[in-house]
Design a protein around this nucleic acid. Structure first.
Length: 366
DNA sequence: AAGGCGAACAACCGCGGGGCT
DNA sequence: CAGCCCCGCGGTTGTTCGCCT
């Protein structure tokens, strides 16, 4: 037996909202509030609408201070960075963009940003594929077209974006060397949906892959730190920030340093607001390195990036790539990973508008 | 001018989690 | 502790609009 419907579907109007309906809803909420019960609200007002529909209409359209359209370059960058870092947690991403709704951002991503990025990806991927074996198989002998079908769209997209970014700046990286690619576990999709967890007993086979061992050990060591230590690191990070800023190439009309630092530390802030190992899965490391690269892709800006040996090592050992981390779990036994539901995060409402972003004024070195 | 098509946006739907009883 | 109810989220679908042929 299925779930009981939230409202009487037969007597509920669907489709676009009429101006009168908007006016009724807006006037009522402005005067009385929602009363803490969206389901009962439409009956009180005399609207033939589902309570959920009223809530959505209010949150996405009628609520004060809502911005529609006209996303700025910085907003684009934030959205892309966070999407690649944390995936489709639209409510969390929206919490970083005052006046934007999760629905708005989601639509904007699906209709524009994704195409903008993945459109570029097609080119670079085509170049990469053409360099593979002529029989269409990669260095592992895998059919290059077969395995992605096991991945969720979101996870795959994020991985693709990572790959594209890698291609742009580090043609010798792991992603561009199919021989290093792991065989994927058939249950990959399930795991791609989840977070990789520090609580997993990472099998040696995983840690020994490529240079990943160093990265994982470094990361685990870091993540064992109490949040206070992490904050301390954030406060001691200026040197690294300067180093990174030197090649980011962002020329925002606004305070780019503050913006960069905000991005850099966003993940750390989210993490510091969280508790437990599950939340530590946030790939806060990835955000800063992605930012400059996103600038290249989105706005065709030249970052002047010259990969140092350290940076190459970092890429190659997945230091900053959530998609790669998730990829790694494909062939681990980490089936305890939680789904990507919002429960593992602070709710968007808890992250008051602009909260995190403003909270973090200092980046930290990765 | 009209039809086709794709992009953009609005809204719906189902599910999971948390609170309450 | 179990069951119910509501909220919030993310994926998906539907509708509108504008461009192109």
């Amino acid at each position: 037996m299925g779930r009981a419907p939230c409202c009487d579907k037969a007597n509920v109007k669907k489709g676009p909202w009429a101006p009168e309906e908007d006016a009724k809803l807006k006037a009522y909420i402005e005067e009385y509030g929602t009363g803490g019960n969206w389901i009962a609200l439409p009956q009180k007002i005399g609207l033939k609408r589902c309570g959920k529909s009223c809530r959505l209409r209010w949150l996405n359209y009628l609520r004060p201070n809502i911005k529609h359209g006209g996303f700025s370059d910085e907003e684009d960058s934030i959205i892309c960075s966070l999407y690649i870092s944390i995936g489709s947690r639209w409510s969390i991403i929206a919490a970083q963009l005052p006046g934007r709704t999760d629905n708005d951002i989601k639509n904007y991503w699906n209709t524009r940003l994704k195409k903008k990025l993945l459109g570029r990806r097609k080119d670079s991927q085509a170049r990469r594929l053409s360099s593979l074996n002529q029989d269409g198989k990669d260095g592992n002998g895998m059919d290059d077209n077969s395995y992605p079908h096991t991945l969720s769209n979101s996870a795959l997209e994020r991985m693709q974006l990572h790959m594209q970014l890698q291609t742009l700046h580090n043609p010798l990286s792991f992603y561009n060397n199919p021989a290093l690619w792991p065989k994927l576990h058939p249950m990959g999709d399930r795991n791609m949906q989840g977070h990789y967890s520090l609580n997993n007993n990472t099998p040696p086979s995983m840690q020994q892959v490529s240079n990943g061992q160093t990265a994982l050990l470094r990361e685990e060591k870091f993540l064992e730190l109490p949040s206070s230590s992490i904050e301390q690191r954030a406060n001691n990070s200026t040197k690294q920030d300067e180093k990174e800023d030197s090649f980011k190439g962002f020329t925002s009309s606004e305070n780019s340093t503050g913006f960069n630092n905000g991005i850099n530390s966003m993940g750390a802030a989210i993490m510091s607001k969280s508790s437990g190992a599950e939340e530590l899965n946030m790939n806060f490391q990835s955000v800063s390195s992605l930012q400059a690269e996103l600038g290249d892709i989105l706005y065709n800006k030249t970052s002047g990036f010259i990969a140092t040996e350290d940076q190459i090592n970092e890429f190659d050992c997945f230091k900053d790539m959530d998609g790669a981390k998730e990829g790694m779990i494909w062939w681990t036994n980490g089936f305890e990973t939680k789904s990507s539901s919002s429960s593992s995060w602070d709710s968007a409402s808890a992250l008051q508008t602009g909260g995190l972003f403003q909270d973090c004024e200092l980046g930290y070195d990765i």
